[in-house]
Design a protein around this nucleic acid. Structure first.
Length: 650
DNA sequence: GAGTCATCAAAACG
DNA sequence: CCGTTTTGATGACT
């Protein structure tokens, strides 16, 4: 304090200035730290405690590595001298008036208050209260893959729980009329399975991509995209933000307000909440500048980005609605005045931040039109063929190239299914026990009354497929009913892959992956997509193949484990009593001359489809079908990707 | 901290 | 099959 040398070195005097901005509570991100955390995460395989543990660790890591407090956020000029210019919303005489020209004074919190906030960030939140407002940078590389897996598993567990609760209330009259989606959400939160729950993320959610589709509002809550099951505006309350003002994090646009204007594009006019009767209807009172409405005003002022989710009607969705994540928007302006039905409303103009992935909602619509055009035989520009398979698949497979002149997919011979006849030795008909079910095998009456079909039972545990044909869970191998079975092929549930493809797909030229396969419609998780085809080549155990000419079933990693495993929250429904895994398939597919479109599916270590081995009836177990199933909800126009197991270059 | 309240859901009802 | 009612959970706030 009695430093007399101050005159000589003014720059070095660290005079504590109470008004100075706080130093950012940064954490140095070293490669060692990342590696250590990753090791920690990978050490835990699939069972419950480890999964929970993994989630917790991921959240902690999120805190430590890639998040920083908004209070210390440098890039945006926090409060400029002209705040009113961008926010022409006249302060209503009522409650909290518009932020007055606060620019004159930086409303930063006192040092000690914020250092305690930083300390709070270190400690894990206990209960629900202690949350911290953070922005997460989208992780790269393995972290990115890991985040995606977390999101997938959370959604998977949610859906599994929802189905269980749904079935539960349909059966017994006990807890009738329960909202299965909300029950599932509640259970997940209780178990600590909700993602990013104790950090309030502003901006992108790790592991959630633009264009991702959700079926329930509760599902948005589970992955941390939005935090209300009904409310349209998600925000961080003033008490948690160091500036003492609420800020919005996400909105859901359902087009339910008269004053909304949403062309599904880059600009969106969103109406605030309040002043309306419970279930829609016209406004009867002025909206107030509070809660979510106020938070959007501050988001506008601070230039904080807001996640936008749009709601669409969707037949394929169990709820009839689909919620599409459309990326980050900025609140450009806000107005307050009489709405179309009379009383005053808040209106917010949101503009999409450029440079994000293709817009989910607009692509959604475009894909529908494209599908219709193709279905009616119109050949849009850039399409080399309307049906690569020339009628051999159940649906047409168009080929699209808007990138260059390459037309190589048209050159090979198309076979929809591999021809195993020459190679494999079916088990003798006499010794094979076929089923003689009169009707549908694998119909899931309830958990108690399992199906008695011998084919279904061979799979160990409940039915393999749901009533809609989606795979209940991945297995080392699936035994379907076959040619010798007595069940009607048309209605038997245990033949889901035998009816051919059910989703409109196309082969397309892409700048990143050369040729790829993408879907034109929505694909439900667990849905059957297609089969790999080519010339069957028998191989011995150790024999290796070059990737490129062959599809090698032995190389596919056991991604099936990741699909349908809800043992983390559900009493294991006879799971783990899988039949003995078949000894590695004894063949590879030579796709150099003959193949089907599946050969164009790209490789990824964060795939959205996976291979499930399938044996039908008395087929030779060394020659399973390579069936492709969806492991995510795949939105329209998204490329399919699969893990071919070619990453381990050593 | 328990209780109140509002909320661009979803299912059931009529 | 619609509009309406009921059920329902959450976070924010008191």
């Amino acid at each position: 304090m009695a430093s007399s040398s101050a005159a000589a070195a003014p720059l070095l005097t660290p005079k504590p200035d109470p008004d100075a901005p706080l130093p950012a509570p940064t954490v140095e991100v070293t490669p060692e730290l990342c590696a250590a955390l990753r090791r920690e995460l990978e050490r835990s395989p699939d069972d419950l405690p480890d999964f929970v543990h993994g989630l917790r660790l991921a959240q902690e890591r999120l805190d430590a590595i890639s998040a920083y407090l908004v209070s210390a956020r440098p890039p945006m000029p926090p409060l400029t001298a002209t705040p009113t210019a961008t926010t022409p919303m006249p302060p209503p005489a009522a409650t909290p008036p518009m932020p007055p020209p606060a620019a004159t004074k930086r409303p930063l919190v006192a040092p000690e208050a914020s250092s305690s906030a930083a300390a709070k960030g270190k400690r894990r939140a206990r209960g629900t209260g202690a949350t911290e407002m953070v922005r997460a940078t989208v992780p790269a590389g393995p972290d990115h893959v890991h985040a995606r897996n977390l999101v997938r598993r959370a959604r998977l567990i949610f859906e599994a729980l929802r189905v269980v609760y749904h079935r539960g209330d349909a059966g017994a009259g006990e807890g009738a009329r329960k909202r299965a989606d909300l029950s599932a959400l509640s259970v997940m939160f209780d178990r600590g399975l909700g993602l990013y729950r104790d950090v309030r993320i502003v901006g992108s959610i790790p592991g959630v991509f633009v264009g991702d589709v959700f079926f329930y509002r509760a599902e948005l809550c589970v992955v941390g995209l939005h935090n209300h099951v009904q409310g349209g505006i998600g925000y961080i309350p003033a008490s948690v933000v160091s500036k003492g003002k609420p800020v919005a994090t996400s909105i859901v646009s359902s087009g339910g307000y008269l004053d909304d204007h949403d062309g599904g594009g880059d600009v969106l006019v969103y109406t605030g909440s309040g002043g309306r009767p419970r279930n829609g209807g016209e406004h009867f009172a002025d909206q107030k500048l509070e809660g979510g409405n106020l938070s959007l005003v501050y988001s506008c002022e601070y230039g904080i980005e807001v996640r936008v989710v749009r709601s669409h009607d969707c037949e394929a969705s169990p709820s009839g609605k689909a919620y599409v994540y459309d990326g980050l928007y900025k609140v450009e302006s806000s107005t307050y005045g009489p709405g179309k039905s009379g009383p005053d409303v808040c209106k917010f103009k949101l503009v999409r931040i450029p440079g994000q992935g293709e817009l989910g909602s607009s692509v959604w619509h475009a894909a529908g039109e494209l599908g219709n055009a193709l279905a009616s035989g119109i050949r849009p520009r850039g399409y080399l063929s309307l049906d690569l398979s020339k009628g051999k698949e159940r649906l047409r497979v168009p080929v699209c190239n808007k990138v260059d002149q390459d037309s190589s997919p048209l050159d090979f011979e198309y076979i929809a299914h591999p021809d195993f006849r020459a190679a494999r030795v079916p088990r003798p008909v006499k010794r094979y026990k076929a089923c003689h079910c009169g009707t549908t095998c694998g119909a899931a009456r309830s958990a108690a009354a399992a199906c008695k079909c011998v084919c279904v039972r061979k799979n160990g545990g409940g039915p393999v497929y749901n009533a809609d044909g989606t795979l209940v869970r991945g297995r080392p191998v699936v035994y379907e009913c076959g040619a010798l079975c007595g069940c009607p092929a048309a209605s038997c549930l245990n033949r889901a892959t035998q009816r051919g493809m059910e989703h409109q797909l196309e082969v397309f030229r892409s700048k990143e992956t050369e040729w790829g396969v993408r879907t034109l419609g929505l694909i439900q998780p667990g849905a059957f997509v297609c089969e790999y085809s080519g010339d069957v080549v028998t191989v011995d155990d150790g024999q290796s193949t070059d990737w490129g000419c062959f599809v090698d079933p032995r190389k596919f990693p056991a991604r099936w484990r990741e699909w349908g495993d809800a043992s983390a929250v559900l009493p294991d429904e006879e799971g783990h009593k899988f039949p003995e895994p078949i000894t590695g398939p004894g063949y590879v597919l030579d796709v150099s001359r003959r193949r089907n479109f599946a050969a164009y599916i790209s490789h990824s270590s964060a795939p959205n489809v996976f291979v499930q081995f399938v044996i039908r009836g008395n087929e030779d177990e060394s020659f399973p079908h390579l069936m492709v199933f969806a492991m995510d909800t795949i939105p329209p126009m998204r490329e399919l990707s699969i893990d071919y197991g070619i990453d381990q270059q050593g």
